[in-house]
Design a protein around this nucleic acid. Structure first.
Length: 888
DNA sequence: GCTACTCGGGG
DNA sequence: GTGTACGAGTAGC
């Protein structure tokens, strides 16, 4: 019998003291399949110290877990060597015994080094059979009946190998969301708090339904299932999961909340936790480091939409409310969590229904995020390319993917791969890294300010670090540390590698393939019109780029199996050399000035204002440079800046122009200038964006200054909508346990006095504004709604000094303005006058000073107190400190 | 300017 | 499950 399937998950079980590998996946007809493979065993390699192989052999042969040992010729992975050396290959009966034997061997005096003794059994298996996570396999085998797994088909595999197919089996997604009540008032705890509602959403639909809600209260309807109690509800949940049989289980923050909560409740209520495709192995969650949980459901993939969004989008906040609004243009139902218990205990059908629909919507949103935003596409491609399972693509980092590729490619060439360093070794490597250092890219000192006289041509090295690997044949297997007769090349910084003709490096070879594949993929994209296929191709080229860029970082990562500082340093030093020689070429051959550049890019100012002519000139410069570059190094010319505002290294804004099929497209490009920050109110972002826009597009700094002064004026005249002034902060602990005065906490206390019911609690976000008054700043926080209602006045001084000024100042300073020019001294009503420091006198503001210890502050601490506990006063140039009273 | 510590999401 | 494992942002020197 012949089977083709796409691999979703793999694991192994021990049957009759022997491992059986299980491969879960879907076949070409979209049926779920599980294939079993017997007769495959774990193994690893030992390099004995000089001539002591037989000592190791004697030690190993006495171990009952050992099935077989043999002397083999393998190539050592670090440093160039022309020939393989003798190693001991040890095969064990049981994967679980490997780590034990490995640790034993580590302390044995005859053992030099151990290789490949920390590779997960499933990955050892997959590598040896050349199959990948989300890749297709083709297998011979025969059907078998078993009650151990739940898949449509089960069979014993006798032979298997990779199968090339661009298709993807259709995935079934299920998302879960639970509602709970908290007895303590803090976050619910599964030990004591029960689940009241479980909502589940499906994609595609399940029995013509998009979602169902399980509840222990309220009326049963078509898509609301009324349960007797929590136990029955969880049993039903298990039934629904089994019945729908999803490939992907998702939910919003499911890894850190819903999944562990559900599984704990199942355990307490003795509901079987076999919600995977195996009848024996249960789902479990494991805490990996503080606040990081990983969920495992055998045969399925858990994809947390919160984690995916956090990794792939840059937002100010990542709550389901904000994320759904931005990404889906959908609104979450509005139920404050303090309201949940009220609705639940109201005994009112309508109110309970509101809660039920709220829960339903949450599950649907979590699902829509994954399916509509296609969050899994990139990870699917990363799995296919690197070989790791989809689950590990989602949870794991770059190192795991790189290592999986390295294992396969090293083994292919008869090399062995080292084990991961243990904590002691990692510490040693960290120390080495600290002592010897890893220097990064070269950053050209910028010509600070606004550039509008002429165009700025921007050139980038194409895949700089991967290209350096290839151009200099840089690899752990080609680096030469001592003497050698072989042909070598020296990098500009003096690192030596054998030439490609002696032996091609493995990493350069991998990168060559990845980059070539990316070129092919991009080419295919240009011809593709089908949107679905285009999306897959785009995900693939993105994955290829991500992967090829991971190798440099990997070699400098102290926890890597192949951490080699010399290689990381060889790469960056080449990069610095190359970019600087390009700078020279530009200056010497063209007489133009590079005004800025970072690592792999340079920005050249040309005396030309016409875009088309600038484009021609840019192309000419690029051509000249590329003519002088060797190896596979190449620079790309893709964009022109019509204006360029650079504040410091790594902080700039530019009016970018790119030519897209004959037409110019423009955009503001910003690097390192944050316009959004969680502790800034919206007014700051708006003002910054507008200011930068005026500067770049009009080239008129005076107008920008006028604009800023206008905003200040509006602020003083109380004309700014209060929504734009709200600052939000988190209540991280009980308000009573804060030692100092915190503005947002003071507001919480106020709100508690007014209405203890609706006051924010621990974990809530509090939005506040600062109002005028004689009290300390932190006492002048107020609820925006209350301010509107009572028509209170906001404090303009605070907003200028603490919100607007710090970021805006940086921009104007770079343009050559002084702080007093900024504040409109000598023009209209100066801000300083508005402050009216008591007693009214012409007092120049010069910061703040502590009355006790004389510590000086640029802005007053919000607590109103110095670190030493002393009172803060206004500092004047005469040295006389006025008693603080900002904003009367 | 740097490094050390915190906190995110969820009810 | 042969698995030790985040990352931005902010406070604190």
């Amino acid at each position: 019998m012949n089977v083709r399937m796409q691999i979703l998950d793999t694991d192994y079980v021990i049957i009759e003291d022997r491992p059986v590998v299980r491969i879960f996946g879907k076949d070409e007809d979209n049926r779920t399949v599980c294939g079993f493979v017997k007769g495959y065993f774990p193994y690893f390699y030992i390099l004995a110290k000089d001539g002591k192989t037989s000592d190791v052999e004697n030690f190993v042969s006495a171990k009952p877990a050992v099935m077989k040992q043999e002397r083999v010729m393998k190539r050592f992975p670090r440093g160039f060597s022309a020939v393989p050396i003798e190693m001991l290959k040890v095969t064990l009966r049981n994967p679980q015994k490997v780590s034990e034997l490995r640790e034993l061997l580590k302390t044995h005096p005859a053992v030099g080094e151990i290789f490949e003794a920390d590779i997960l059994f499933k990955y050892r298996f997959m590598a040896d059979h050349m199959v990948s996570g989300m890749g297709w396999l083709e297998a011979d085998g025969s059907d078998v009946n078993t009650h151990t797994v739940k898949t449509n088909r089960t069979f014993n595999i006798t032979k298997l190998g990779p199968f090339e197919s661009p298709k993807n089996a259709q995935m079934k997604y299920l998302s879960v969301d639970i509602e709970t009540l908290s007895k303590s008032g803090a976050l619910p705890n599964p030990q004591e708090d029960e689940i009241i509602i479980v909502s589940v959403a499906f994609h595609p639909e399940h029995h013509n339904q998009r979602s169902v809600v399980l509840t222990t209260r309220g009326a049963e309807t078509g898509s609301v299932i009324r349960c007797l109690d929590e136990t029955q509800m969880l049993e039903k949940l298990r039934g629904i999961i089994d019945d729908y049989d999803p490939d992907i289980v998702t939910g919003f923050n499911i890894n850190n909340f819903d999944m562990p909560f559900i599984l704990k409740r199942m355990e307490i209520l003795r509901v079987p936790r076999t919600i995977g495709r195996c009848n024996e192995k249960t789902a479990y969650t494991k805490e990996i480091m503080k606040n990081r949980v990983r969920s495992t459901i055998p045969g399925r993939v858990v994809a947390d939409s919160y984690q995916l969004i956090k990794k792939n989008f840059s937002f100010k906040r990542y709550g389901l409310t904000d994320v759904s609004r931005i990404l889906l243009k959908q609104e979450k139902h509005d139920v404050a969590h303090s309201e949940i218990s009220k609705l639940w205990n109201s005994g009112d059908r309508e109110k309970i229904l509101r809660l039920i629909e709220y829960a339903r919507k949450d599950a649907e949103l979590a699902l829509d995020l994954v399916t509509e935003k296609k969050l899994l596409d990139k990870y699917l491609e990363l799995s296919k390319l690197s070989g790791v399972l989809l689950q590990d693509s989602l949870d794991g980092g770059e190192a795991g993917r790189v290592e999986n590729i390295l294992l396969r490619e090293f083994n292919k060439r008869n090399y062995v791969v080292p084990c991961k360093p243990d904590t002691g070794e990692i510490r040693k490597k960290e120390k080495e890294k600290e002592d010897r250092g890893l220097k990064g890219g070269f950053v050209l000192t910028p010509k600070v300010g606004l550039h509008t006289d002429g165009l700025v041509v921007v050139l980038d090295f194409r895949s700089m670090y991967p290209s350096i690997f290839r151009s200099y044949n840089i690899c752990p297997t080609t680096i030469v540390t001592g003497n050698t007769d072989a042909d070598t090349t020296k990098t500009p910084a003096g690192y030596t590698f054998v030439t490609k003709t002696v032996q091609e490096g493995i990493i350069p070879n991998i990168l060559g393939n990845l980059l070539e594949e990316r070129v092919k993929t991009k080419r295919a994209m240009r011809q593709e019109t089908d949107e679905e296929k285009l999306r897959v191709l785009d995900a693939k080229q993105l994955a290829l780029k991500l992967l090829s860029n991971s190798f440099y970082g990997y070699t400098g990562y102290t926890k890597a199996k192949l951490y080699i500082l010399d290689i990381a340093n060889a790469i960056t030093s080449c990069g610095r050399y190359l970019i600087q020689s390009v700078n020279q070429t530009v200056e010497q051959k063209f007489g133009y000035q590079p005004i800025y550049g970072d690592t792999d890019s340079i920005m050249i100012k040309i005396p030309e204002t016409d875009l088309d002519k600038g484009w021609e000139l840019g192309a000419k410069i690029a051509e000249k440079i590329n003519g002088e570059l060797s190896g596979v190094m190449q620079m790309e010319f893709e964009k022109i800046f019509k204006s360029f505002l650079i504040l410091t290294k790594k902080r700039y804004a530019a009016w970018k122009f790119v030519k897209e099929n004959g037409h110019w497209k423009d955009r503001i490009e910003m690097k390192g200038i944050e316009t959004v920050r969680r502790d800034w109110c919206e007014l700051v972002s708006d003002t910054m964006n507008r200011t930068i826009d005026i500067i770049l597009k009009k080239g008129d700094t005076k107008e920008a200054l006028n604009y800023f002064n206008g905003i200040m004026k509006e602020l003083i005249e109380n004309k700014i909508p209060i929504e734009k002034l709200v600052i939000t902060k988190n209540v991280s602990k009980s308000p009573t346990s804060y030692v100092g005065l915190q503005p947002h906490i003071e507001l919480v206390k106020k709100l508690q006095k007014r209405n203890s019911q609706d006051a924010p609690g621990v974990g809530d976000r509090v939005g506040y504004v600062i109002i005028k008054g004689n009290q300390l700043l932190s006492k002048r926080t107020e609820d925006p709604e209350y301010v509107k209602e009572k028509r209170l006045e906001i404090d303009p001084v605070y907003y200028v000094e603490n919100q607007l000024l710090p970021p805006i100042e940086r921009i104007f300073i770079a343009l050559g303005f002084t702080k007093s020019e900024l504040l409109g001294k000598g023009r209209q009503a100066s801000l300083l006058e508005m402050m009216r420091v008591k007693p009214a006198q012409s007092n120049v503001f010069d910061g703040f000073v502590c009355a006790s210890c004389s510590n000086v502050y640029a802005s007053a601490p919000l607590t109103g107190l110095c670190q030493c506990g002393g009172r803060i006063q206004i500092k004047t140039p005469t040295g006389a400190a006025e008693k603080i009273s900002i904003g009367n």
